[in-house]
Design a protein around this nucleic acid. Structure first.
Ligand SMILES: NC(=O)c1ccc[n+]([C@@H]2O[C@H](COP(=O)([O-])OP(=O)(O)OC[C@H]3O[C@@H](n4cnc5c(N)ncnc54)[C@H](O)[C@@H]3O)[C@@H](O)[C@H]2O)c1
Ligand SMILES: NC(=O)c1ccc[n+]([C@@H]2O[C@H](COP(=O)([O-])OP(=O)(O)OC[C@H]3O[C@@H](n4cnc5c(N)ncnc54)[C@H](O)[C@@H]3O)[C@@H](O)[C@H]2O)c1
Lengths: 256, 256
DNA sequence: CCGACTTTGTGCATGCGTTCACAAGCGGTA
DNA sequence: TACCGCTTGTGAACGCATGCACAAAGTCGG
């Protein structure tokens, strides 16, 4: 689920679920899975598969079959009972819901290690996300084409973004520059931001931010090994390597 | 939340929450946030801040103050009422919980666009995740150092991973190679995998997989703009650009 | 045309995560 | 020492998401 939205919600129609709007409210978690189903379905389509059951699709997508059916039910009833789903039909409906009927042009800001990788990556245009603009501050980079697109100076961000109708901004600058870059993207009218810098961005309510934080991902993995490790070692001994009382278990104990 | 774990749960002690184990069960979502708090706290510590209240910290981390306190309560009670938290104390406890007291060495497989960026990135070692091994199949890459580490051939993966005690494997190969690479990592004893390839990996229960799927992130962003766009345009008209009946709203209507 | 079989769509229960609200606890002050 | 104001820690309520289980709805063979 998104991590950078928090307070935004409270401002939009406090307590009044007009049922028309509720119909549009697909759970955030379901949206993420729909994108995965779409990828799997596209792959099937490419291989000439024309029909699929919820069981097959759910296995390919790595989820529970009931969950898959519920997710699909949010977008409508396009299956045939006793048979399954038509792959093409499902693809087009998911694309429609995800807003992929038109393509969304992407700008990458910060053409360093990561920015180069993103600009050179061929996978986005095919999925409806053409990279159309690159920005940096480094004079050595300005004008140099990366992945076919010449790098512009960050100061040109407003004009270029408006001209090329950029709808998604990707931030791949060092952390200290991220907020400032974000602000510039927002004032250039970009309403969607994908942030790779390990920084919590401040944005107005009408802008959607998603972050990709690799260090956090690794730390979550680290947490799970640690858990597994001392589950295996037995939890009975209350003292761990650091000499702390084990895990602060007391916190969970109901006081007598 | 993780997306590649699903079925695993059912196998581990079906229905019996021994309260000792439950104490260890920190909600997955909370773990992700703890990692963010840790980063923010480290930043504060570097700036000489020694104490912080839940209100301040929660703002810096972009979350609700109550949620922050609950998250911290999962790891114990290390605050002082009426005062707040000692930054250093919190840092050390979060590090302990996340298993960051020892460092976890990382192997990157697939030294293409993305693999290069990861190998060159200086941010991981400092956070306890030194990159110690790189693998590829391309003969032109083998032996070449990237970010100071020479690339090994993928066939050496088992020996090298064991020798360098790799605990996290990062997959940055093209999608078709991902499952095979994953299997090799698993048989080399790697229990944590971070997957950049847009593929659903199949792994045994004792292996933890997290995926980073940029296309999915962008599609989620796309979904939100689309929602906003036709909220603004008004939903009353039942026909959209593609000529479909609007959004399959019927699916949500209760039959009379 | 009918009955058996298959698979969808979903009501419902359960569990998890978030948020509220407040008592408990601590430091400072008179 | 007793009081006051502030902040933590958490019980409890709520809301969202997951998974089950089954009726509804379709296909296919006879
Ligand atoms: N490279 C990785 O694998 C990786 C992994 C995790 C996180 N990150 C994060 O991604 C971001 C980029 O990482 P990187 O390795 O590519 O860094 P980098 O230093 O290689 O590249 C940063 C680029 O941003 C440019 N830049 C600096 N300030 C700018 C500004 N104000 N406007 C526009 N451009 C500006 C620099 O000129 C440089 O080209 C960092 O925040 C980093 O923490 C990177
Ligand atoms: N580059 C990006 O910005 C980006 C963005 C989103 C997703 N991805 C995904 O990340 C993955 C890597 O992307 P990339 O742009 O770096 O690709 P790339 O083609 O530049 O690099 C892939 C590398 O993997 C190596 N490789 C191929 N088969 C291998 C095998 N069996 N074992 C070991 N190495 C092998 C290749 O030799 C190559 O060096 C892809 O799955 C891609 O879909 C990349």
């Amino acid at each position: 689920m998104a991590s950078q939205r928090g307070e935004g919600e409270t401002t939009t129609t406090p307590v009044e679920p007009a049922d028309r709007e509720r119909a549009r409210a697909i759970p955030e978690a379901a949206v993420a899975r729909l994108a995965v189903y779409l990828r799997v379905l596209s792959g099937m389509s490419d291989q000439g598969v024309t029909a699929v059951s919820s069981e097959e699709l759910s296995q390919a997508a790595g989820v529970n079959a009931a969950k898959l059916r519920k997710d699909l039910s949010y977008i409508g009833s396009y299956g045939t009972r006793g048979v399954g789903y038509d792959v093409e039909v499902l693809v087009s409906h998911i694309e429609r819901i995800l807003g992929l009927t038109r393509s969304h042009s992407v700008a990458v800001v910060g053409i360093g290690n990561l920015g180069h990788a993103l600009a050179n990556y061929g996978g986005f245009p095919g999925r409806g996300f053409p990279v159309t603009a690159l920005f940096d501050v480094d004079p050595d980079l300005i004008g140099i084409p990366v992945g076919g697109i010449p790098v512009n100076h960050i100061d040109e961000i407003t004009e270029v973004c408006l001209e090329r109708e950029v709808s998604i901004g990707v931030i791949a600058t060092p952390p200290p520059a991220a907020q400032s870059v974000c602000d510039r993207l927002v004032s250039a009218g970009v309403q969607c931001i994908l942030n790779f810098a390990p920084v919590v961005l401040q944005v107005p309510d009408n802008v959607e931010v998603r972050k990709v934080d690799l260090a956090v991902e690794m730390q979550i993995l680290s947490f799970h090994v640690a858990r597994r490790a001392d589950e295996a070692a037995g939890v009975s001994a209350g003292i761990d390597s650091a000499g702390n009382n084990g895990l602060g278990v007391d916190g969970m104990v109901i006081r007598p």
